[in-house]
């Protein structure tokens, strides 16, 4: 039987703005299945986004939704979670939104280990503004502002998150649709800041310019480069050249921020 996504979508808000071939819809569906698997209650859940194609997801989802300013989603979300720790807080956005203009908020959300789930859709480009290079555009790639090839080194979002202190870090791709649900659900169940990066190169502003002949070619590439962490453990560095690890990359237990603050409150009241 077909899965019923409709009950999570606001009536009348579709069609979405995403281009044919974009992976964002696949990711949204994976997230919906994860929400259901985790039993998230609509009234008790806030989905918070920044600005960009991925961030438009909040308009479609029938939850408490906050479409904030460019890069600021994690900071707004921190205010929501801090004020109402009993709420489930999901952050969504793109690579430019999260790691360039929002980079400071991203790393400090990781450092605090505040109990939120941050799904970051890495499409390798600024899509909504027409294809300028982002911190996640591969070096050498073509973008509307790097027509001679991108001179910038690239952020590894997962390493950035781990380095900043996120206690759950995972990576998937838009090709591996079933895994998205699994990773997001595990992130939601994790106590602390969970970062789930999903690779889904933008076909319109990245793919075309970088000589991908079709969306199918781009999806095939995601399939080919993705190596599950367990499989990677048995591979040589030469075999891993050009590959990207997927699955749960990092998991640890560390005190969660709102629980730490609850202790501040009891100490203040006791003083």
């Amino acid at each position: 039987m077909a899965y019923d996504y409709e009950k999570h979508i606001r009536p009348g808000k579709l069609p979405h703005i995403w281009c044919p071939g974009c992976g964002h819809g696949i990711i949204m569906k994976g997230m919906i299945r994860a929400f259901e698997a985790c039993g998230l209650e609509k009234n008790n859940t806030a989905i918070i986004s920044g600005i960009g194609c991925a961030s438009r997801m909040t308009g479609y989802m029938d939850y408490n939704t906050l479409h904030t300013a460019h890069g600021r989603a994690a900071a707004f979300a921190t205010g929501v979670k801090m004020a109402k720790p009993e709420m489930d807080v999901i952050v969504v956005g793109g690579d430019g939104d999260g790691t360039a203009i929002g980079g400071n908020h991203f790393i400090h959300a990781c450092r605090r280990n505040i109990d939120m789930t941050y799904v970051i859709m890495n499409n390798s480009i600024y899509g909504m503004t027409g294809g300028q290079f982002s911190p996640c555009t591969p070096t050498g790639a073509l973008a509307s502002t790097t027509v001679y090839g991108n001179p910038d080194p690239t952020f590894d979002i997962a390493k950035l998150a781990i380095g900043a202190g996120a206690t759950f870090v995972a990576r998937g791709t838009a090709f591996h649709a079933a895994q998205i649900e699994k990773l997001v659900a595990e992130g939601i169940r994790h106590k602390g800041l969970a970062v789930i990066e999903i690779l889904d190169d933008c076909p319109t502003t990245y793919g075309r310019r970088n000589k991908f002949r079709s969306v199918i070619d781009m999806m095939k590439r995601l399939k080919e480069i993705a190596v599950p962490v367990a499989a990677a453990a048995k591979m040589t560095p030469e075999q891993l050249e050009g590959k990207v690890l997927t699955g749960v990359l990092h998991k640890e237990e560390r005190p969660e921020y709102t629980e730490q603050y609850a202790q501040v409150i009891s100490r203040a009241k006791g003083a």
């Binding site: 300013a69 900071a75 707004f76 979300a77 921190t78 205010g79 929501v80 801090m82 004020a83 400090h108």
Partner: peptide, 20 residues
């Protein structure tokens, strides 16, 4: 909450205000 910068401080209070 002491946030990471001034913009984040402003963001945090807007988020908190929306929870009442």
């Amino acid at each position: 909450i002491q946030m990471e910068d001034e913009i984040a401080a402003m963001a945090s209070i807007i988020g908190a205000s929306l929870t009442g």
